[in-house]
Structures are given as structure tokens and as C-alpha cells.
Amino acid sequence: MKKSRIVLLAGLSVIVVAVSVGLMMYFKPHKDFATSTPDFELTVGELISAFSMDEAAATARYVVDDKTVLVHGIVREIDTDSFGNAVLVLEQDGVDGSVSCTLTPKESAASIGLRPGDPVRIQGQCTGMQGLIEPEVIMIRCARARG
């Protein structure tokens, strides 16, 4: 009787733990790229040339495993996507291409003061490079870097 109770209790605890782990995984939050410590810090030119030279290697380094990338550049233009988020297009003197950074809703409101020509440091999630018109590295879930 006692032994079967222990087995039952043990079985129940395993189920409770398994269900909690499952639920925690199912509901786990997205990584906060806006506040996490950057894994890489580089200029617009360095980021573009990494993808232009070897896209597979750059994808493995900057995109896979949700790395936080911090990029330095000059604001070329400020767009808005159809969701209403601000998109900062960053460039660098003498570099062909741009880095397009979509800000989080909270950061979009905070970016109102920015103007083309302003130097900025933006951190976020790098999702790769597109190249229909010019080399364009894409970053989403972005924020202005603190500190």
C-alpha cells in the first residue's frame, strides 16, 4: 500500500513537472533584443561587407540563434511600415548599401526627434540581407542602444 502510494506520488510529480515545463516552453516570451547585451557591435559598412562577402557565414554568425546585433551608422531616411513602426535606414560614407532597422512600437514613438544625417547606435535582431536594389541588411525588433 505504502509503496504504491510512493509510486503514485512520484508519477504525479513527474507529470506536474512535465506539464509545467511544457507550458513554460509554449508560453516562453520572445527575446528582448532592445535591452539584451549585444553579442556583436559593428559599423554599417562592416555588417554589409560581412553579408556581401559570404552570406552563409554571416547568416550563421549574426542571424542564427537570435543574436543581438548593435550597429553604428548615419540616418539616411526614416520610413514607417504598414504596422506603424518607424524604420530607420542607416548608411555610412563610401559604403554601397544600407541597414534597415525596424524599431519596436515603444521605440518608434521615442525616435520622433531623429533626423536624416544623425549618427545613431541601434541594436536589434538581424534577419539577413536582401538585395533587389542595393545590398540591404535587415534588422527588426530594434531600439536605440543605451550607454
Binding site: 542571424v63 534577419t127 540591404e136 527588426i140
Partner: peptide, 29 residues
């Protein structure tokens, strides 16, 4: 929200390009 596309009305050519990683889901998992 970061899909790039070029449309040429004179020829009707249309090109789209997107990054898979740019798809945002409600749940991280």
C-alpha cells in the same frame, strides 16, 4: 513587414524578396 519588391509597369515585371527570419509570431516557440 520587411518585404522588398520591384514593379516595372512598362514590362509588367514584378520581383519579391523576403527573409524567413523576418516573420514574427506571437509565440516565441
Amino acid at each position: 513587414y520587411t518585404v522588398a519588391s520591384v514593379l516595372t509597369p512598362a514590362t509588367g515585371d514584378v520581383v519579391f524578396q523576403l527573409l524567413i527570419k523576418s516573420f514574427k509570431f506571437e509565440r516565441a516557440l
